[in-house]
Amino acid sequence: MLRIPAQMKTKKYWKETLEAYLYLLPAFTILGLFSFYPVVKSVYMSFFDWSLLRDTQYFVGWENYEKIIGDPVFRRAIMNTARYVIGYVPISIALGLIVAVLLNSKIRFRGPLRVAFFLPWVTSSVAISMVWRWIYNQHYGLLNMMLAGLANAVNTVVEFVSFGHLSEVWQFSNPNWLMEPQWTIINLVIIAVWQSLGYNMVIFLAGLQNIPHELYEAAEVDGASPWQSFWKITLPLISPTTFFISIISIIGAFKLFTEVYVLYTGRPGPVNSGMTIVYYVYRNAFERYRMGYASAAAYILFAIIFVFTLVQMRASKRRIHYGS
């Protein structure tokens, strides 16, 4: 066997290494300055009472973390996020899957329909939150006007079929969506479902393409209804996609900020009902200039997200293993 002399190989190797580093230089410089360095720096900062308003910073150990964990506002942020996740992730996934399955059949206008469902995902969160602010308006908003119309229709029908015995069964109270704290998370869930449904649909459509068509044909020959095929074939085989979407939706949910900021014009909802972890970081860093404290909060966010990332990574490894 012909062997390349070790000397030559290393010389060529080191030459190529030098060349590769030149290619990597711009990326490495930018990432170094704005990713690697800040990741380390913010750990360091999280152990300090760090203010931009003075020159010396004071080491405080774990105090920032202890204070954050003990802060009812931070707990509120965690609770809000949990409620938001529980509200939005299952609905958005279920609707995304239903639309994907329906669109996956041979139908006309598939392209335009797909675009219609997907459009909300592309648009800027700021502009779209502005539109929802208008929809949620108590007196002139579309939502209350539609609900009032619906309540009226329901009442008329109920009154008619009950021969006038039941009138005004649905007493519509014109809720003030943006001012009453009990609606805050629901408002955000509605926007999130509307915005992410199309994205989930696209991922599900890609997943559905991977299910062998013969399975459905065999099921049909065996007399299975489409309903049975869905439960026995589609749902089990699409489950890795479902899992993937749930994890990334949860991770995304923990980063909620813009929608709250815009919907409530720079406040975290009435009585902190829309407080999120990122909002908490933002408020402490850029409204109160407590940089160390905010860094610690950001690291807690990282820790939470990291757990979900690990779960996702382990699951996808297993998936690849079974697949091959």
Binding site: E16, L24, L31, S35, S42, V281, L301, F302, I305
Partner: peptide
């Protein structure tokens, strides 16, 4: 092919796991 290729690639990929909010303050 170069020295430290896998290490650098993992280092790069690792930043995708870190939420941007962590880097915001520094």
């Amino acid at each position: 092919n170069f020295f430290g290729k896998n290490f650098l690639f993992l280092l790069f990929l690792g930043t995708m796991m870190i939420p941007g909010e962590v880097m915001l303050i520094p």
